[in-house]
C-alpha cells in the first residue's frame, strides 16, 4: 500500500478534469455571462453590449417563451405519465419466465437506439396527410384523414405518441429488472397466505419497486426536458407554437433570430430546472442508501 502516492488519483483524474473543465464547466460559466448581453453571432462576445437583467425580464414578459415553457411542462408531464403507466404495466404483465424474453427485449430496445432525427423522419412519414399510413388506412376504411401535424392539439399528441413509442421500452426494461430482483421470499409468503395476483402487485411488488421506479421517473423526466430533434423534424414547433418546447425555442432564438444573449438566458432557466430535478434525484438516492444502511445495522446487531 505504501507505493500509492498522494498524487496518483489526480494523475488518473487529470484528463477528465481538463476535458470537463474546458468543454462543460467553462461553457456554462460563459453562458451565464452571455445571458446578460445583447449579442449576435456576427460579433465577438467582447463587443456585445452589457444589458444587465433585461434578457431575463424580457423572458418574463415574452408571450412566446411563456407558451413554450408551458408546452414543455405539458409535454414532459404527458410523456412521463403515459410511459410510466404503460412501461410498468407491461413489466407486470410480462414478468414471467419466457423463452423468447431476450429476443423480445432486444426488439424493444431498438426504438431508443435509433437517432432522434430518424425517429422524427419515420413518424413524419407516417403522419403525412396523403402518403402516411395512418391517413391511408383511415381513408381506405371510408373515414376522412386526421390533421395529425397540421392542427395544434393533434400535433401535440402526435409528438407525444412518437416519444411514447421511443421511450416506453426504457421504463419497461428498468421496471422488469427491478421486478426480477425482488426478494422471492416475500412473494412466496404472500402466495402461502393466499394473496391474489392483484394483491401481490399492489401490496408487495409496487411498494418494493418504489425506489427504482422513482429514480426511473426522474431520469425520464430529465430526458423529457431535453427532447428536441424529434420535434424539430416532426413539426419544427408548429403549427403556431403548439409544439415548441423550450429546447427548440433556444435553438430557434439562436439560429433564426440570432439573439444569443436571449438564448443564453433561456438556457439558464432550463438548466436551473434540470438542476433542481437532478438534485432531487440524487438526494432521494442518498436517503434510500442511508435507510438501507440503517436497516442493515439493525439486522446485524439484532442477530
Amino acid at each position: 500500500m505504501g507505493t500509492a502516492n498522494r498524487l496518483t488519483p489526480w494523475l488518473f483524474l487529470a484528463p477528465a478534469v481538463v476535458v470537463l473543465g474546458i468543454a462543460l464547466l467553462y461553457p456554462i460559466g460563459y453562458m451565464i455571462y452571455a445571458s446578460f448581453l445583447s449579442w449576435s453571432p456576427s460579433e465577438r462576445i467582447g463587443d456585445a453590449e452589457w444589458i444587465g437583467w433585461r434578457n431575463y425580464t424580457n423572458l418574463w414578459t415574452d408571450e412566446a417563451f411563456r407558451e413554450s415553457f408551458l408546452v414543455t411542462l405539458k409535454f414532459a408531464a404527458a410523456v412521463v405519465t403515459i410511459e410510466m403507466v404503460l412501461g410498468v404495466g407491461l413489466a407486470l404483465l410480462l414478468d414471467r419466465k419466457l423463452r423468447g424474453m431476450t429476443v423480445l427485449r432486444t426488439i424493444f430496445i431498438l426504438p431508443m437506439m435509433i437517432a432522434p432525427i430518424v425517429v422524427g423522419l419515420m413518424w413524419r412519414y407516417m403522419y403525412h396527410p396523403t402518403v402516411g399510413v395512418f391517413n391511408r388506412t383511415l381513408k381506405s376504411l371510408g373515414f376522412d384523414g386526421a390533421p395529425w401535424l397540421s392542427d395544434g392539439t393533434w400535433a401535440f399528441w402526435s409528438v407525444v405518441i412518437a416519444d411514447v413509442w421511443q421511450w416506453t421500452p426504457f421504463i419497461f426494461i428498468l421496471a422488469l429488472a427491478a421486478m426480477q430482483s425482488l426478494p422471492r421470499s416475500a412473494l412466496e409468503a404472500a402466495e402461502i397466505d393466499g394473496a391474489t395476483e392483484w394483491q401481490k402487485i399492489w401490496y408487495i411488488k409496487i411498494p418494493l419497486m418504489m425506489p427504482v421506479l422513482i429514480v426511473t421517473l426522474l431520469l425520464r423526466l430529465i430526458d423529457a426536458f431535453k427532447v428536441l430533434e424529434v420535434i424539430l423534424v416532426l413539426t419544427n414547433g408548429g403549427p403556431g407554437l403548439s409544439t415548441e418546447i423550450v429546447a427548440l425555442r433556444i435553438f430557434r432564438t439562436a439560429q433564426e433570430f440570432q439573439e444569443l444573449g436571449e438564448a443564453a438566458a433561456m438556457s439558464n432557466v432550463l438548466l436551473l430546472m434540470l438542476m433542481a430535478l437532478t438534485i432531487l434525484m440524487v438526494g432521494y438516492n442518498w436517503l434510500q442508501e442511508r435507510r438501507a444502511m440503517r436497516l442493515r445495522v439493525v439486522a446485524e446487531t439484532g442477530k
Partner: peptide, 27 residues
C-alpha cells in the same frame, strides 16, 4: 467535489451548450 460535479453535469442538455460552445469554439 469531483464526484458530485460529474454527477450534476450528467443532466446538461446539448441545447444549453449551444450558445456558449458556438461562441467559445468560434471566437
Amino acid at each position: 467535489v469531483v464526484s458530485t460535479t460529474t454527477l450534476l453535469m450528467r443532466m446538461v442538455p446539448p441545447a444549453v451548450l449551444l450558445v456558449p460552445i458556438f461562441g467559445i469554439w468560434t471566437f
